[in-house]
Lab assay of single mutants.
Amino acid sequence: QYKLILNGKTLKGETTTEAVDAATAEKVFKQYANDNGVDGEWTYDDATKTFTVTEKPEVIDASELTPAVTTYKLVINGKTLKGETTTKAVDAETAEKAFKQYANDNGVDGVWTYDDATKTFTVTEMVTEVPGDAPTEPEKPEASIPLVPLTPATPIAKDDAKKDDTKKEDAKKPEAKKDDAKKAETLPTTGEGSNPFFTAAALAVMAGAGALAVASKRKED
């Protein structure tokens, strides 16, 4: 009698068979294992007439167990938060979910874009303008004329002030004479000065007065 010990991944146990020799028993056991989907390494112990079949655990490639991950970057252009961060993800969709959660946790809500070549996400917050509040242009400074500094008044001594007054009066006198001369030139000519009769009478009076003066002097002599 021969014995078979099964150490399979899905089947474990023992069974026996009657055979004329070990070779015949081995054929029977291998057919049995094959029928039950057991495929492994076989050993035989002649002392105990025991066969053992052991399935090795399937070696799984690490790449099959853990999907390949890629590093993705997020650029934040927020109104109050600006910067960059990264995450590792199996695909862009997974990275996007992580980045949007990160942005939401930090109060950033804007327009999202993605560049597959650089594996970069960008979120930009738009500045909202309040309706009716149009931007006002800064007032242009008016052209200013530079002020001319005033010349301080120079105090005048009393004596100098009197001299100035005297000079002013002396300066006025010639001007007054000139005014009188002008008035004389502009006076109208009277009839006496221009009538020949009056001129002859005046000469006769003057001659008579002269003769009287000569006669009076002779009497005195």
Rank of each mutant, 00 (worst) to 15 (best):
L4C: 08
N36R: 04
G37W: 07
A47I: 13
T54P: 02
T48R: 12
A25K: 01
A23C: 15
K27I: 05
L4H: 04
T16S: 11
T16M: 09
V38P: 01
V28N: 13
T52K: 09
V28K: 15
T50P: 02
L6T: 09
Y32T: 04
E14G: 07
D39V: 15
A33I: 03
G8L: 04
L4I: 04
G40K: 00
Y2V: 05
T48L: 12
A19L: 06
Y32H: 06
Y44D: 01
K12S: 14
T15H: 07
K9E: 09
D21C: 13
F29H: 09
K9S: 09
V20P: 09
G8F: 05
V28F: 10
D39L: 08
Y2H: 11
D39H: 15
Y2T: 04
G37E: 06
E18R: 14
K30P: 00
K49C: 10
N36F: 03
L11V: 06
T50V: 15
K49R: 13
D39Y: 15
Y32C: 05
D45W: 11
V53Q: 03
E18A: 14
T54H: 07
G8R: 05
K9G: 08
T52I: 08
E14S: 14
V28D: 05
Y44Q: 02
D21G: 14
K9T: 11
E26H: 00
G8P: 05
K3D: 07
D46Q: 15
D45C: 12
A25E: 01
L4R: 01
A25Y: 01
E55T: 06
A47M: 12
K30I: 00
F51G: 01
T15I: 09
K3A: 08
Y2K: 03
T50L: 15
K30E: 00
K9P: 06
L4Y: 03
E55D: 04
A23L: 12
T48E: 11
K27W: 02
N7D: 09
A19I: 06
G13Y: 04
F29V: 06
T43M: 11
N34G: 02
L4V: 08
D45N: 13
T10A: 06
W42P: 00
Y2E: 01
E18Q: 14
A47Y: 12
T15A: 06
T50W: 15
W42S: 00
F51P: 00
T43V: 07
A22K: 03
T43Q: 13
V38H: 02
T10P: 04
T10N: 06
D45I: 12
V20E: 08
L11S: 04
F29P: 01
K9N: 11
D45R: 13
V28G: 10
V28Y: 10
Q31F: 05
W42I: 00
Q31S: 09
T54C: 08
T43L: 10
A22F: 01
E18P: 14
T43Y: 09
L4E: 01
K27E: 01
T52P: 01
G40L: 01
L11H: 04
V20A: 10
T16L: 09
K49G: 14
F29A: 04
E41H: 12
A33F: 02
Q1M: 13
A25G: 11
D35C: 14
E55H: 05
T16G: 15
T48P: 10
T17K: 11
A47R: 13
N7G: 09
T50D: 12
K3Y: 08
L11E: 04
V28W: 08
D21V: 14
K49Y: 09
G13L: 03
T52L: 07
A25N: 02
A25M: 03
E55R: 05
K3W: 09
A19M: 07
T54F: 07
D45E: 10
K30W: 01
A22V: 05
W42Q: 00
A25L: 01
L6Q: 04
G13A: 05
K27N: 02
N7V: 09
A47N: 12
D39I: 14
Y32A: 04
Y32K: 05
